[in-house]
Design a protein around this nucleic acid. Sequence first.
DNA 1: GTATTGTGTCTCAAATGTGTGACATATTGC
DNA 2: GCAATATGTCACACATTTGAGACACAATAC
Lengths: 184, 184
Amino acid sequence: MRDTEQSIIDAAILIFNEDLSAPLEKVADQAQVTRRTLHRYFKDRKELMDKCQKEIRRACEIAITNAYYASESPLERLEGMFYAGLDCGSKNTFLHKLHTLHDHKHQAANEQCSEYDHTFELWKGNLQVLLAKGVIHQTMTVDWIHNFFQSVVVVFINSQQKGSIDRPAARQLAWFSFSKGIGI
Amino acid sequence: MRDTEQSIIDAAILIFNEDLSAPLEKVADQAQVTRRTLHRYFKDRKELMDKCQKEIRRACEIAITNAYYASESPLERLEGMFYAGLDCGSKNTFLHKLHTLHDHKHQAANEQCSEYDHTFELWKGNLQVLLAKGVIHQTMTVDWIHNFFQSVVVVFINSQQKGSIDRPAARQLAWFSFSKGIGI
DNA sequence: GTATTGTGTCTCAAATGTGTGACATATTGC
DNA sequence: GCAATATGTCACACATTTGAGACACAATAC
């Protein structure tokens, strides 16, 4: 009986990712609970949002960290972390989206922002290593690559939602597009 | 005095692209206009939305068509049309987003959908030619490439919003990531 | 079984968003 | 300057969303 909270968070991530101001009823529907129940777990919209961000960061950070330590070669690391990011799916892209809104002022002072930065520290660090080594095309910047990565995740998610390509094939395609797209 | 309507549409595209259910007040603010004025030009939210879609399709279709007829070589066409898409910016990605929402059922019967399909007919047709010729990597599908294209546009827009890379450089980067990413 | 806990239903008040009328003010074309 | 037009301000009714209380019912633990 007790993963209601989690299922609401998952639903919220799915819904908010597409429609930031969607009514909470939509989230409740997606989670197959009443709005009343949703409010029992989350005081208000803001609290739900915050819990979503926490959950996202938790999941992404674990996935990325595991992938990082699974290998010592920067290039293998890149691939592993890339797949980890894919597997985080909309969690990944939603977090990124929140921090790229046109009126969002990204600042290290803000706790949410600094935690966001921390989540992708290993990933960006590894990118820098590869850039320095010349493995990645020299015109690339870490920011560009990071945005590009997030975008490829979106493409992957879309392909899975439509169901036109099966998961392993889509993963391969995604890695192809990403790795070639940054000049590897 | 008379591009208020246009500026409201532009603002709406920007805002709705990030937040589909954003209150109209946000749109008005972005357009530097009162909500009252917004309502003088647009009966209600739906009418504004429809006008946005019309404007988007108009702009994208002109850009894509011009680019198509600017060359006879499929590969040159691809590059020209790619840049045209970049220049349409968020117009492009917003339209695409509306037709990839998880609860959106894409159907040719729907007028909006068929107009959407029409907008990218030349673009997708040209992709097919390149696929058939073997210029594009054979594991790619037209759908994947199209989604991938839209994603790269998002990356481009983000880079411009942050202002970290100047426009020509970003265009070049975008083309690099896109063309290599589909195996050219 | 009974007690406990989680959820649904119904209800309601407050807050927020929407659309419009009336009128004042600003801007434009002549 | 004057007339016409566009926009802003204020006020309002109405709709939707939000958050919570009261209580019933179902599931679970013991």
